[in-house]
Design a protein around this nucleic acid. Sequence first.
RNA 1: GGAGGAGUGGCAGAGCGGUUGAAUGCACCGGUCUUGAAAACCGGCAUAGUCGAGAGGCUAUCGGGGGUUCGAAUCCCUCCUCCUCCGCCA
Length: 425
Amino acid sequence: MLQVNFIRENLEIVKQGLIKRGFQNIDDTLKAVLETDDSRKKTQSELDDLLAQSNKLAGEIGQLYKQGKKEEAENKKISVAKLKEAAKILQDNLTQAKSTLEEYLLNIPNIPHRTVPQGKGENDNEVYKAWDKAFPDLKDAKLPHWELAKKYELIDFEMGAKITGAGFPLYTGKGAKLQRALINFFLDAAEEAGYQEVIPPHVVNEASARGTGQLPDKEGQMYHIQIDDLYMIPTAEVPVTNIFRDVILHQNDLPKKLSGYTPCFRREAGSYGAHVRGLNRLHQFDKVEIVRVEHPDKSYDALQEMLKHVEGLLDKLELPYRILRLCGGDIGFTSALTFDFEVYSAAQERWLEVSSVSNFETFQSNRLKLRYKNEKGKKALAHTLNGSALALPRIVAALLENHQTTDGINIPKALWKYTQFEKIS
RNA sequence: GGAGGAGUGGCAGAGCGGUUGAAUGCACCGGUCUUGAAAACCGGCAUAGUCGAGAGGCUAUCGGGGGUUCGAAUCCCUCCUCCUCCGCCA
């Protein structure tokens, strides 16, 4: 969430940013935001005046009682009662103004970084780093992963559907081991890169979902456990970033680098069809997420470092990939700059998104109230970043498809020590 | 799930209806002393909103929300969290 003062002081920047995201006719909204804030301030100060008067009278009444001047005290009580009545109205107005302001602010997305390209949707994303080598030549072995999964008994989609429903696969045998291997591979790599491993809760409360911006923007995306009013996490970003909700770090504590493996749960309501077949889109999947809290001056360097980290993983998995810089129309609500990683899945002959690495600048930290103190004790909002490193299903899909031969699937060398097998056959 | 107890500043810990935003200790920051350090001593040290050029003023905040009262950290209700005992259980 943007700060009102930021909007006030950078009106033109905010405007241009929203236009880049495809918003139109935002002048009125921004004007209303500032007016609401003005009226909030005015009401607050009127209310404070009344409360100051009434506090003063209360003190006087106390004195009068001590001096035994009951009658005078009673008279003053009447004045206080009148003040309170007026204060009540102001209090209601203030609450109203605050909630209106909040409502506005919650619906204004982050301002895109200056390098974010103009554009309406995914077709306008910029290819930041293209794949300049050849794609795998599959020759006679060109099965899509769902057929490979069936052939080698790696994943039982029907059984998952029986147990739970579509989008909840059951991994079996070497398929299950491959999952475990990838998770460990990713976690070890993150540790090597200086990320501290955590295992967070897989279910979060409303405050956490709000803190990272899943609420109210993406309410329908999460599974909601109504009886306890908890949400199943759509990504480890939510519980991990919320470690820092209402936290004031010292500048010297930065950066904070955390990694976490969790299953992720997404309702993905309304998305069905050929493109979501097999592992392409699931309701439950595994992911290792990396999260960073950074000093504002260093967050973009950190973002680059995260890109390198993800690139390293994909190199080791011997998968062709490209990096996209998301355009204004495709970038997430809370993000200032996002790079997506896509791996090329040779049998399906299409790119699959496997990672999204973003800098949220202060957008999340403002909601989270995540700040840092500098040497002089001055507090400022920290920057938050996160990225998938990596999400498993599409990696598995690409791994199976790209590394298939007529007599089996070759496991990339980097995984051998985790899988304990070199080939699926 | 049942019965009790507790939640106060970074931590520990007073206060239990009236200048208490909150004693005291520790921690932390600045200074004096010292060749240097420690000790000792002196001073500073919550957050947020708002007004002000600034000094500073005002308001709110003692787990969250609501209530009683002229006045609440202190009384009442409710929710949350933690602790103890009982029950159930991986």
